[in-house]
Amino acid sequence: MRTTILIFSLTVFLASCNTSSKKSESTSDLLPLGTHKGTVSEVIQTPSYTYLLIKESMGENWIAIPKAEVKEGQQVFYDEGLEMKNFQSKTLQREFETIYFVKGIRNEALESVDEAIRKNINKSSGAAKTDIEIEQPQGAQSIAYIFENKSSLSDTKVTVKGKIVKVNNGILNTNWVHIQDGSSFENSFDLTVTTDELYQVGDVVTFIGTIGLNRDFGAGYIYNVIMEDATKVVSL
């Protein structure tokens, strides 16, 4: 009789432990809408990006983040990003069937989403100020003028001449060029230009393009002011 009672008590105790464990696991797996949790199973580093294969509960996803130190086996959290199908990485000479460009990864206990976004805003701020002085041709506007009058220039075509101080080609299917002309407004002196054309650091170019405001392209590419779809002007 005592043996029967002992076996019954042990069975109840084990069942209780199992239920408690499952409850704890299900509670810990609850995530805010749009938040992903997984384990890094592969890391590929490039000069500008870190590519990560993340093993999650529903499968594996490739993501790309601004360059960061990440280790295989690390548990990470990240938020929804820009999905790219059949993405060709020229640096890696590799095609990803599906990849997500996200603002960054974080340890949920250490860093909030807002903190990660603020860091990425700082990362996309361009190059240091260059000691140059470029005179704008007739009909063009200085970089200082563009930043000062950004509201009235939004969604309009503007011409500007500047020296290229930074280039990132082939990102999100476009080329990203940073130009300066020596002018500044409230410490804004670096204008980002997107273009299909190829340029090199040191080139002095006159661009015409459309001014955009508060653009968030994902992957840390966040700009208060940007010139989009720009082309070179050869007549000025």
Rank of each mutant, 00 (worst) to 15 (best):
G126E: 09
A116S: 08
A140M: 10
E108D: 12
G126S: 06
T130C: 05
K119H: 02
A127C: 00
A109H: 13
R106G: 03
I143M: 04
D131Y: 04
I121W: 00
Y145D: 07
K123W: 00
Q136P: 02
D131H: 11
S125Y: 00
N107W: 13
I146N: 02
P137M: 09
T130W: 08
N107A: 14
K123R: 01
I143W: 10
S124W: 01
R118S: 07
N149C: 05
D131K: 12
E111D: 08
I132L: 15
R118F: 05
S124F: 00
L110T: 07
E111S: 12
A116M: 10
I146H: 04
A116C: 05
S125D: 02
R106A: 03
G139W: 09
N107F: 13
E108M: 13
A140G: 06
Q136N: 07
G139E: 06
Q141Y: 03
A109T: 07
E133C: 12
A116E: 03
N107Q: 15
A140R: 10
A128I: 01
E148F: 09
V113F: 13
V113T: 11
E108P: 10
A128R: 05
P137G: 09
I143L: 05
S112E: 07
K129T: 11
S112Y: 12
S112R: 09
A144E: 03
G126F: 08
N120S: 14
D114H: 12
I134N: 01
E135Y: 13
A109D: 12
I117M: 08
R118Q: 10
I121A: 00
I121V: 05
E133W: 11
